[in-house]
């Protein structure tokens, strides 16, 4: 395998010149609870996504990754509230749109691929019918022959024979269902595809196939992808930039080379130490002791303080602000206080 940092570095440089598609500013999401104070699922999150950029969203389970993605599409469950912030898509604030306007944005501009384990396809409708539904909804001026041809082309794109479009989800294998889901996500030529742990619950061979497929499709179609994952290997291979989340807040946000070669937040450093690197001699893998914090019972200071190996007194009392280390590198840790630009 070639060194991923070299190739992605040149790619990242070119990505930075492209126009910004999605600009998320200061986004905060709560889960309200009648009997208790709201759980702060996402706090003051900022990131941008440029045309053709692949952003990796990394963090442990329960750190708010999926909540953030559902929040972007305004698909939060009833208890979820967007309490602050803005989501600009091509300059338009999605949070200010009416529900009908938002319905128009969904899938046509931003589509989402759910976890493979999820029962994300309707069991009583054929795959082709479910893909065609999205096409007919967002590209209405097409006759049925054109829709049919498009369904076949989409299935062909993900390596499924066109004549299987009339089959039901239970007649597909797990990997094929995920391919069909990808085909469906591409049905209306969206600018952004959110992939929410698309390879979870698939076996390793199928995971590799799906990732390769997504990488190829991204290059072919020039897609912008937000890749939610806890697999750092996937991030290294596919992503241009990485947002590391911890307990609903940004721990570190930078391009992929910086995250891998010069991480500054102790959490990012620990995450990388917990991940094998086949290019280096076999070393000891470590795990981060403890668990991520419960979102309804957050520590008073830095949310990583209880597990941080470099913790000191101030971390337990105050929440560290986000320090800008250079043009595209931010991290939230008191150790970096003097380096802020």
């Amino acid at each position: 395998m070639s060194d991923p940092s070299v190739s992605s570095h040149t790619h990242a440089a070119s990505v930075n010149d492209r126009p910004v598609l999605l600009d998320v500013r200061n986004l905060s999401i709560d889960y309200v609870n009648k009997d208790a104070s709201p759980a702060q699922a996402v706090r003051e999150l900022d990131f941008t996504l440029r045309a053709g950029e692949v952003l990796g969203l990394v963090g442990e389970s329960g750190c708010g990754k999926s909540t953030l993605m559902l929040g972007l599409m305004r698909l939060l469950p009833p208890a979820g509230r967007i309490v602050d912030g803005a989501v600009y898509f091509q300059g338009r604030d999605l949070l200010a749109l009416s529900e009908a306007e938002m319905e128009d944005v969904r899938w046509k501009n931003i589509s989402i691929i759910f976890q493979g384990a999820m029962n994300a396809l309707n069991p009583v409708r054929t795959i082709g019918d479910q893909i065609g539904e999205a096409i007919r909804l967002h590209m209405p001026r097409q006759d049925s022959a054109a829709v049919d041809a498009r369904i076949r082309r989409l299935l062909d794109l993900v390596g499924i024979a066109g004549n299987r479009k009339d089959q039901y989800p239970h007649q597909y294998s797990g990997g094929m269902r995920q391919r069909a889901m990808i085909a469906m996500a591409l049905a209306c030529d969206p600018q952004i595809v959110i992939a929410d742990e698309p390879t979870t619950a698939l076996d390793v061979m199928i995971q590799a196939q799906i990732l390769e497929l997504m990488g190829n499709l991204q290059k072919e179609l020039g897609l912008s992808i937000i890749f939610v994952t806890h697999d750092l290997g996937v991030v290294a291979e596919l992503c241009d930039s990485v947002l590391v989340m911890y307990g609903g807040v940004t721990a570190e946000y930078a391009d992929v080379d910086t995250i891998y070669n010069a991480p500054r937040h102790p959490y990012t450093q620990e995450l990388l130490r917990a991940f094998p690197d086949i290019t280096r001699p076999a070393g000891k893998l470590t795990s981060i002791p403890g668990y991520p914090p419960r979102l309804d019972d957050l520590p008073p200071g830095c949310r990583f303080a209880p597990r941080c190996p470099q913790v000191f007194g101030r971390c337990r009392q105050e929440m560290p602000p986000i320090y800008r280390l250079d043009d595209k590198h931010v991290a939230s840790c008191f150790l970096l206080e003097g380096e802020s630009v």
């Binding site: 599409m73 698909l75 009908a100 319905e103 128009d104 944005v105 969904r106 899938w107 046509k108 589509s111 989402i112 759910f114 999820m118 029962n119 994300a120 396809l121 309707n122 069991p123 539904e133 999205a134 909804l137 967002h138 469906m184």
Partner: peptide, 14 residues
């Protein structure tokens, strides 16, 4: 509350 209903919402169906 099924996942495919969330998919349907994400597809922009009303």
């Amino acid at each position: 509350s099924e996942d495919y209903i969330l998919t349907a919402r994400a597809k922009g169906l009303n």
